Amino acid sequence: MISVDLSRLITAQDRAAEAEADRRDAERIQARAFLARTDWYVTRLTETGTPVPPDVSAEREAARRVLDQSAG
């Protein structure tokens, strides 16, 4: 008789949850990377008063929301 260890079975729900967690992790990594790449705009604003382009500001805000959601 073949012995099957049922404690090691991975259900479709487990796989879906893992895939969702991986997706959220990737989204957080992308958000952090985008903020890091565009921090110079904020430094420039602080030092020279040159505004951050509206599209960059909007994307930075969206990236911060992604990171805020993961904190809660």
Rank of each mutant, 00 (worst) to 15 (best):
R65P: 01
L45S: 09
V4A: 10
D25T: 15
Q30A: 09
D68F: 13
R24V: 14
G49V: 04
E59S: 13
V52G: 00
A36Q: 04
D55K: 14
A31Y: 00
A19F: 01
I10W: 13
R44C: 02
A26V: 06
P54F: 12
I10S: 05
V52E: 01
E18P: 00
Q69T: 11
R28K: 06
S3G: 08
E20W: 04
A26W: 02
G49R: 10
S70N: 10
D55L: 07
R28F: 02
E18I: 11
R23C: 12
Q69Y: 06
S3N: 12
R8E: 14
L9F: 07
Q13Y: 09
A33I: 01
P54K: 09
G72H: 10
V52C: 03
S70V: 07
I2K: 01
V42T: 05
D55A: 08
L9G: 04
G49K: 12
Q13M: 12
E27P: 01
A17H: 06
A58R: 13
V66L: 02
R23D: 09
V42S: 07
E47H: 08
Q30E: 11
E18M: 13
P51V: 00
A26N: 13
A17Q: 11
S70K: 10
A17E: 13
R8T: 12
A31K: 00
R65E: 14
A16P: 00
M1H: 09
A26R: 09
R23P: 02
Q13C: 09
V66N: 05
V66Y: 01
T43C: 03
I29C: 03
S3E: 08
S3Q: 08
A31Q: 00
D5P: 02
Y41D: 01
R60T: 08
R44Y: 01
A12Y: 14
D39I: 07
L35M: 03
D14S: 04
E27D: 05
G49C: 09
G72Q: 15
R37S: 10
Q13R: 07
D68R: 06
L35P: 05
R23W: 03
A21E: 15
A31H: 00
A26F: 06
E61Q: 14
F34C: 00
I2F: 08
A21L: 05
W40V: 03
L35V: 02
A26M: 14
M1L: 12
S57G: 11
A58G: 10
D22E: 04
L9C: 15
R23Y: 06
I2M: 11
A63T: 02
